[in-house]
Nucleic acid binder design. Sequence first.
RNA 1: GGCGAGUUGGCGGAGUGGUGACGCAACGGAUUGCAAAUCCGUGUACAGGAGUUCGAUUCUCCUACUCGCCUCCA
Length: 452
Amino acid sequence: MDIHLYNTATRSKELFAPLDPENVRMYVCGPTVYDRAHLGNARPVLVFDILYRLLKTQYPHVTYVRNFTDVDDKINARAAESGRSIGEITAETSQWFLDDMGAIGALEPDHMPRATAYIAEMVEMIEGLIDGGFAYAKEGHALFRVREYARYGKLSGRSVDDMIAGARVEVAPYKEDPMDFVLWKPSDAQTPGWDSPWGRGRPGWHIECSAMAKALLGPQFDIHGGGNDLMFPHHENEIAQSCCANGTDRMANVWMHNEMLQVEGKKMSKSLGNFFTVRDLLEQGVPGEVIRFVMLSTHYRKPMDWTEKKREEAEATLRKWYAQVEGANEGKVTEAVTTALADDLNTPQAIVELHQLSQKGDGSALWAAMRLLGVMGDAVPGWAAVSDADLSAYEAAFSSVRADAMQTKDFSKLDAMKQMLIAAGVEVKMRKDGVDLVAGPSFDPVKLESMP
RNA sequence: GGCGAGUUGGCGGAGUGGUGACGCAACGGAUUGCAAAUCCGUGUACAGGAGUUCGAUUCUCCUACUCGCCUCCA
């Protein structure tokens, strides 16, 4: 099946053609590990998780790399204020990230390199850039000479001159040109640092991805992804570094960027008070599958608005589907579902196809499709499982009361009983010749104890 | 200020140069002691203006508005 992906670099949807069909290679910019992942961090993880799953259905092998940025001034600040070591913080935070992303159904990438494990590769790459005249060392810094790379700004559609005119660039005495960006910077005694030809210091933010991508995927690979906030400057800088250091004309063939997440129509930010982490939601009792479903219900290139209403709808839909899947045997993913995903990860369209399967009552195909989307595994998750509470005694009692009521035309006792059952979270389904009681999601057996 | 994305019915959300995607909600009907659930059915949405066209929601241009990035926050 043909897969089409929107390539930011060309601003168009293109037929995906891997460099090596035996080994599709993708790199996604991962988190800076200094705290819990917030909901916005989850979006790229889920978007590229879907891409990873899709690619795996079409190619024999996919190599997915997502890094951990464990050297960064935010981490340094966190260490300084908490008195804990950097290693302790990054180890703990990295595991939190994996736990939280696992809870929302994200598969782990094949490689999850930590920046601090690739310092030597970064130094080597910077040396190469300096040797080639693309970078220079000054006052303990190494800087990339942006004017040396003619294609700088092409990915994000900017020109160097326009950006200078915008005057939002940092001017520093050690820079030849205000646009030049840092590859390596000096560390003082309190700041983590590594020895280098330019003195003890630490890498700039962008070089890690160039070095790790090269080490694990080679100088050129298929897909590079991340949030669209990374398009500039991060990805622009990565391209400049990698292409100049590796002598290639491109770093990745396809650049993919997801749009940002909002909460109730506004940017999620601490100042607006609508900032929360994935863990916060999970602790509030929002199942990971629901978080994932809401995320997938908006196409990745559109802003995604997290709302309470969507959360509720997603949960209702999933409960309905889980009930249909329970008892079915897992079948095969229908072509319509895969086709939707193959069209630039059109997850909302894929969800439509799942609705169709649900409508047709095709539980086995639904199961397979839900698994592909990552909201279903080998069994229905516990939170959605139909309760196995034995209500047969109540069923019998209710049936006989109902039979009496039908005779006497006095339904008051029956209605009272029904109210109690409903209050206890029991779904009451009356048929002509009987009654079914099903424990609903909010079933509370304690409330039935006062029943006659 | 620069760059970019977007504006589809009550809400969410795909898609298409020409027969009202889909989900939720709503409404009508069947069923029901009454409800619920279920089933059947109903709705003439494509920001505004101009242009291209036999025909535009879909293409082009302009306007308005929203959002994002450029700045530690994805």
